[in-house]
C-alpha cells in the first residue's frame, strides 16, 4: 500500500463526491415523495392502485437492484417514446441520460421501503393526540401539519437516515450504466494507474466517512426534534 498513491486517488475521487451526494439527495427526496403516495394509497385502500403497489412491492422484494436497473435501462426509452408518440411530441427518448434512468430506478426501489417507514411513523402517533388537537379547535389540516407530522417525523428520522445511506450505496451500481459516482471514479482511476486496492480502499473510506457523518447528523437532529415535541 502506497501512501502517495492513496493521496493521489483521494484527490482524484474528491471532485465527484458533491455530485454523488447531490444525486443521492435528489433520489432520497423523490423516494420520500413516491413513498408517501404509496403509503396513502395503502392507507386509504384506493382500488386498482393498491393492487399495483402491492404487486410492485412483491416484485422489488425479489428482484436485485442491478436487475431492475438493467430492465429500466433497456425499457425506459421505449416506454417514454410510446407516450411521446401517443401525444405526438417530438422528443426522442433514445438518448435519455443514464443518470435519469438511475434516478428513476433507485427512487422507485427505495420508495417501497420509505412507504413502510412513513406508514409506520404516522400510525405510531396516538389517537389521543388527534382528539386533543380537534377538541382544541384545530382543523383536521392544522392537526395534521402541526401535531401529527412533527411527531411522525421524530419517529421516522433514524429510518430516513439509513434510507439515505441505502441510496448512497445503491448509486454505486450506476457504473454499470455509465453514471460516474465515487465508486465509478475510483474504478476509472484504478484502471488508469493500475493501483486497484488503493483506489477501492479510498472509495470505501469515503463511503464509511459519509455514513458516520449522516448517522451523527440524524442523531443530533433527532434529539433536537425530541426536545421540541
Amino acid at each position: 500500500m502506497n501512501i502517495e498513491i492513496l493521496w493521489q486517488d483521494f484527490l482524484g475521487i474528491l471532485p465527484v463526491v458533491p455530485q454523488t451526494i447531490a444525486l443521492a439527495v435528489i433520489i432520497f427526496l423523490l423516494s420520500i415523495l413516491i413513498g408517501t403516495v404509496m403509503a396513502l394509497i395503502q392507507e386509504y385502500n384506493v382500488p386498482i392502485l393498491i393492487q399495483i403497489v402491492v404487486l410492485f412491492k412483491l416484485f422489488l422484494r425479489g428482484t436485485p437492484l442491478i436487475v431492475f436497473i438493467f430492465i429500466m435501462y433497456y425499457s425506459l426509452p421505449g416506454i417514454v417514446n410510446f407516450f411521446t408518440n401517443l401525444l405526438s411530441l417530438s422528443y426522442n427518448a433514445n438518448n435519455i441520460s443514464p443518470m435519469i434512468i438511475l434516478i428513476v430506478a433507485v427512487s422507485l426501489t427505495v420508495s417501497s421501503f420509505q412507504a413502510e417507514t412513513i406508514r409506520g411513523s404516522f400510525l405510531s402517533v396516538s389517537h389521543g393526540q388527534i382528539e386533543a388537537a380537534r377538541s382544541l379547535g384545530y382543523t383536521p389540516f392544522q392537526a395534521f401539519t402541526r401535531i401529527i407530522t412533527p411527531q411522525a417525523l421524530v419517529e421516522a428520522l433514524p429510518e430516513f437516515g439509513s434510507a439515505f445511506l441505502v441510496v448512497m450505496k445503491a448509486i454505486s451500481l450506476g457504473f454499470m450504466i455509465t453514471v460516474v459516482d465515487i465508486f465509478a471514479q475510483a474504478r476509472l482511476i484504478a484502471s488508469s494507474n493500475s493501483y486497484y486496492i488503493e483506489a477501492f480502499v479510498v472509495a470505501a473510506l469515503m463511503y464509511w466517512g459519509i455514513a458516520v457523518i449522516v448517522v451523527k447528523l440524524t442523531n443530533k437532529f433527532e434529539s433536537r426534534l425530541l426536545s421540541r415535541s
Partner: peptide, 22 residues
Amino acid sequence: SSFTRSVPIIIQLFIVYYAIPP
C-alpha cells in the same frame, strides 16, 4: 460490522478480490 454495513457491497467485492492475494 460498521464497515460491511456502510460500504457498498460492490466495493467490498472488489477490495477482497484485489487485496487478498497480496
